[in-house]
Computed example of a mutant assay.
Amino acid sequence: MEISHIIVLAVIQGLTEFLPISSSAHLVFIPQLLGWQDQGLAFDVAVHVGTLTAILWYFRQDLRPLLHAWWQSCLTRELTAESRLVWGVILGTIPVALIGLILSVLDLDEALRSTVIIATTTIIFGLLLGYADKTGLRARSEYQLTGWDVLFIGLAQAIAVIPGVSRSGITMTAALLLGLNRTAAARFSFLLSIPIIVLAGGMETIKLAKQADQLVWLDMGLGVLFSAISAYLCIRLFMGLLERMGMMPFVIYRLFLGVFLLVWIGF
């Protein structure tokens, strides 16, 4: 890959992974739009490692007490607010993990990557995000989620296997509909991303195992670096401005993007 392509795609992945605008959609249509060669599975794994690094670093002060509380709950069978949150992340991961496994076994991943599907889901779920942001009560934190709340968010997250839906977008939408405030919705969505990125990256790494001698390690290293930096900066900026600006800028962006894609393919 050319250096310019690596930087652009890595930065796009970093910026879009945690914003409610669908990173998978951007990684599918931007190379097509610019006439670039497909970046390949190895590069996708690399940029996901970068975004995982960013989210782990962002939550570095939160993860240790959360994991400690979770481990204590395993030993004592007594739940605290912190341990419930970790169990919630685990429960919320199960639906999308099962759906992702089924799609992988049936080899349906590529069938869902059409531009029409991406454009349609970008518009529909963008409008739903706007509705949730306008009507949500925004009165609860992520520590007040019940088991049924988490299951609802987890089932919503499973829909994000379809490109254009946006994993972060649909989980924030579900959380807002349940009455979480914007910051809490974003924090829970980001925490949910950790096991998902680990699982998805693990499955893709297994596929790459037979190609280890063919990998371009410099390309992958640069992908990790630039996606990690851009993702971390994006998270910091997003969390700092979220309560003031709300979700409407992302809703508007999604509508314009969806319409643009439909016009582009002559739909």
Rank of each mutant, 00 (worst) to 15 (best):
L63C: 13
V161S: 06
F250D: 07
I30V: 15
W264R: 10
G130P: 04
L137E: 14
S230Q: 08
V150P: 01
L75G: 10
S114I: 03
W57Y: 14
A228W: 03
L108Q: 12
L128C: 11
L79H: 11
T80I: 05
P65M: 11
R244D: 12
G201K: 02
G169E: 08
R140C: 09
D107H: 14
I3C: 05
A10R: 01
D107A: 15
A132M: 11
L199Q: 01
I12G: 01
A160K: 02
E243M: 08
Q144N: 13
R236M: 13
L79V: 08
G223C: 10
Q39N: 12
V96K: 00
A54K: 05
Y131R: 13
K134R: 15
G266P: 07
M220V: 04
D109M: 09
R187N: 09
S4V: 11
L67A: 13
A42F: 02
F125T: 08
G201V: 05
R140L: 14
W70V: 00
G154V: 12
V11L: 10
W217Q: 05
A97F: 10
M248C: 07
L218T: 11
F29K: 02
F125K: 07
R64G: 05
R167K: 09
F125P: 03
L177C: 14
C234V: 10
P163T: 07
L108M: 15
S193M: 06
L177S: 14
M247D: 05
L242I: 15
V165T: 14
G35A: 12
F43G: 00
Q214H: 13
L91K: 02
W71L: 14
R138S: 13
P31E: 02
L41M: 14
G258T: 11
V224F: 12
N181V: 05
W36G: 00
L180I: 10
F43I: 03
V165Y: 01
T205E: 03
A209V: 10
L127V: 15
L218W: 12
V86L: 00
G88S: 08
G100T: 11
V259P: 02
L127A: 14
G246Q: 05
L103K: 04
V96A: 14
L128I: 15
A42Q: 01
I229F: 09
S141N: 11
T135R: 14
A111I: 08
E243D: 15
H68I: 13
T121G: 10
R167W: 02
S230H: 07
S114L: 06
V8Q: 06
D133R: 03
L242G: 06
I99Y: 04
I265L: 12
I21A: 06
T171G: 00
A46T: 01
L191A: 05
V165W: 01
L56T: 06
S168K: 03
L129S: 06
I153E: 00
G40R: 02
G201Q: 07
P195F: 01
S24G: 07
A184H: 00
L191Q: 02
T173Y: 00
A139S: 14
I197N: 00
F29I: 06
V224D: 04
T205K: 01
D62P: 02
Y131F: 14
V11G: 04
Q39I: 02
A158N: 08
I124M: 12
I153K: 00
G136F: 04
L63A: 11
G154A: 12
Q72L: 13
G147M: 04
A175H: 01
L261S: 08
T121Y: 12
S227D: 07
S166D: 09
